[in-house]
């Protein structure tokens, strides 16, 4: 787990806007519930017998009840979609930006077996820019926040976060406090 340093306090945890997750999950959840409805339908409705061409193609199918076979296949799909839904949620939940009183931490999933954790101390921050474009981001107040950093640190991008302007203020406030604390330590 990501553990904080001594005397480090969390100011803000940011993830992508929930609407982004909902839009990603919509087709997966729809298929999941469609399978559930179909299974309920199969459990209670009478089924016609197998067509003749199917029986000719695979006569051993007659040994099994068609309802059981269909329910087994659908439960198989249900299990697959449950995992797909949770992989999407994991990807959303663990792509986060944590602003503390000392640094900004970023964790990002790049494929199932590749995750990046990076952090930048507040004194390295040079500039912050906000990028909101499109109808949905403008209406729902979410967008990208870019942090330009000095030295070997790369550019930090908070993607599709809600309230990017408020986040910018929090980062600048944290930076001010961090620099003040650094000056005190030097003195």
């Amino acid at each position: 787990m990501i553990t904080l340093r001594k005397n480090e306090k969390i100011y803000l945890i940011k993830r992508r806007h929930p609407i982004v997750l909902r839009l990603e999950l919509l087709p997966e959840v729809f298929i999941f519930f469609a399978i559930l409805v179909l299974m309920t339908f199969l459990l209670f409705m009478p089924l016609p017998s197998l067509p003749e061409w199917v029986i000719e193609f695979a006569p051993s199918l007659l040994e099994f009840e068609i309802r059981g076979l269909l329910l087994f296949s659908l439960s198989f799909l249900l299990l697959i979609f449950w995992q797909v839904i949770w992989l999407t949620i994991t990807n959303y939940y663990l792509d986060s930006w944590i602003i503390t009183n000392k640094r900004t931490i970023h964790t990002e999933l790049r494929g199932l077996f590749s995750r990046i954790v990076s952090s930048v101390p507040h004194d390295r921050i040079q500039d912050i820019t906000i990028d909101v474009h499109g109808i949905l981001p403008t209406v729902l107040h979410f967008g990208d926040l870019h942090i330009q950093t000095a030295g070997e640190f790369r550019e930090f991008i908070f993607r599709q976060i809600p309230d990017p302007y408020k986040t910018k203020e929090v980062i600048f406030e944290a930076r001010r406090e961090f620099l003040k604390a650094l000056k005190k330590e030097d003195a």
Binding site: I2, I13, Q83, W86, L87, T90, L94
Partner: peptide
């Protein structure tokens, strides 16, 4: 897939979450 999801949460989630 459960092991992968658990691993990611245990390894990369914030301990205080």
């Amino acid at each position: 897939s459960a092991i992968i999801i658990f691993y990611h949460f245990k390894r990369f989630a914030l301990s205080a979450d």
